[in-house]
Amino acid sequence: MNPVNYLYLAGLLFTIGATGVLIRRNAIVVFMCVELMLNACNLAFVTFSRLHGNLDGQVFAFFTMVVAAAEVVVGLAIIVSLFRTRHSASVDDASLMKL
């Protein structure tokens, strides 16, 4: 098996995650899909690290994880405060900017 299959898998997961972001209305699930996309990227990074034979790709994946952690913390805080004011976690309900 050629390790390039990992890349195909990463692309597939990324696409599934992206589609999920577009389809789901529950903000928490949307967030999970974003996490899925980030993880797919990490897999690609790790595979590229193997491809090139150095560890830079893994360092990038590591940074991605840290940033993703920060993002999840803030994002979930936003969802909680949104839910507190609107009693809903649907992203469609936050459409007040519409004319």
């Binding site: 050629n2 390790p3 390039v4 890349l7 195909y8 692309g11 597939l12 990324f14 696409t15 690290s49 193997r50 491809l51 090139h52 034979g53 150095n54 560890l55």
Partner: peptide
Amino acid sequence: LLAGIANASLKDFAGTGQAN
């Protein structure tokens, strides 16, 4: 995306043995 990956010539995997 998959077409792009397939199109790229990703044959030679160096492996992480050296780096690790």
